[in-house]
Write a protein that binds this DNA or RNA. Structure first.
Lengths: 173, 173
DNA sequence: TCATTTAATGAACAATCATTCAATAAATGA
DNA sequence: TCATTTATTGAATGATTGTTCATTAAATGA
């Protein structure tokens, strides 16, 4: 807390005027950042018409946010609020719900593709999870240093692995 | 440390006869557990001849280990040694190397499939990553509570998403 | 200008927790 | 049996760190 106060140019006491405590500070920051991330992703997706381009935009927006917020993301990956034992159950639930909301959003894209006859009419929810797993995995590995190269360069890779898994046989990009 | 000592039936002081400190204890436990996990996975894979069955065995072995070591895995997911800021760089490197070794192992399976003409002769390393991302993602979500159902029941799902992404067009399971 | 409210300060407090070490118990072997 | 080595104990220590609150400074407005 002392370090944060100093970094913000305040005294410790002043910090406690803005936040009730360390957890409140942490929760506020995480919630705000994640809301911004989800918003950026939604905006990027909505800017596209084509379903495949929407999905590509989604992946790209994820990676872009991580590259533009490397500090926060590294911190968040290191101590995910949803898994921090010290953080209130209220936050955990909020984070999980935000995540599930994002899954639902991705599922919407997949369902759209199914209606359009592009994707296998199978398990839209599971496919949404799969995409989020692949995205999260590559982000994590890049942040931790287990994977080389810039994230945005990997967009094609993620899309390829994901799409060729759910594209109807015979359908080509 | 007091809690650990009590759980082990020792006094705190005795704990320090076995481990140099908290970090040493943590490192020893994680290394031992992970080595056992990787061993179990390798054994399960080697028990199979067919490449596709090897991959299925790999996924199943991962999930089985998590189910059999839920306590450790939940703890490890909550405070991944590779990302713990307090833990020595030596451990981080060791964990990342262990992970990369596992990636290489998976890559070997994929390469085998490529040689056999089952998989796209594309990017075996990237496919190895992709599989590990999907596996890790579902494990994480199940442990955290963002995904319902038992892990071993999801084996087919993971295989399906992964394989249909790298299977040559026209090839069927 | 001055009284009053509002904001900012940081030393002091309190709780946590890894670590130590002098004291005690157990084991060894001559 | 007893001297010596080895193992165990847990209260005391010290370092860290979130939080408080009396004090000081700034802002407000009559």
């Amino acid at each position: 807390m002392a370090e944060i106060a100093q970094g913000a140019g305040f005294a410790i006491g002043t910090l406690y005027q803005f936040f009730h405590g360390k957890e409140d500070l942490y929760v506020s920051m995480v919630i705000e950042k994640l809301q911004r991330m989800y918003q950026e992703i939604r905006d990027a997706v909505q800017a596209r018409e084509d379903t495949l381009q929407k999905i590509e935009a989604l992946v790209k927006a994820y990676f872009l946010f991580v590259e533009n917020n490397a500090g926060f993301c590294t911190f968040f990956v290191r101590s995910d609020g949803a898994t921090l034992p010290d953080v209130s159950n209220a936050l955990k639930e909020q984070l999980i719900n935000a995540y599930l909301g994002q899954i639902q959003f991705i599922e919407g894209l997949v369902s759209k593709g199914i209606k359009e006859g592009i994707f296998k009419a199978d398990k839209s929810r599971d496919y949404a999870y799969a995409l989020s797993w692949i995205i999260r995995g590559i982000i994590y590995d890049c942040l931790v240093g287990a994977h080389q190269g810039s994230l945005t360069d990997k967009t094609g890779l993620v899309i390829d692995i994901f799409l060729r898994g759910i594209l109807k046989e015979g359908y080509r990009l």
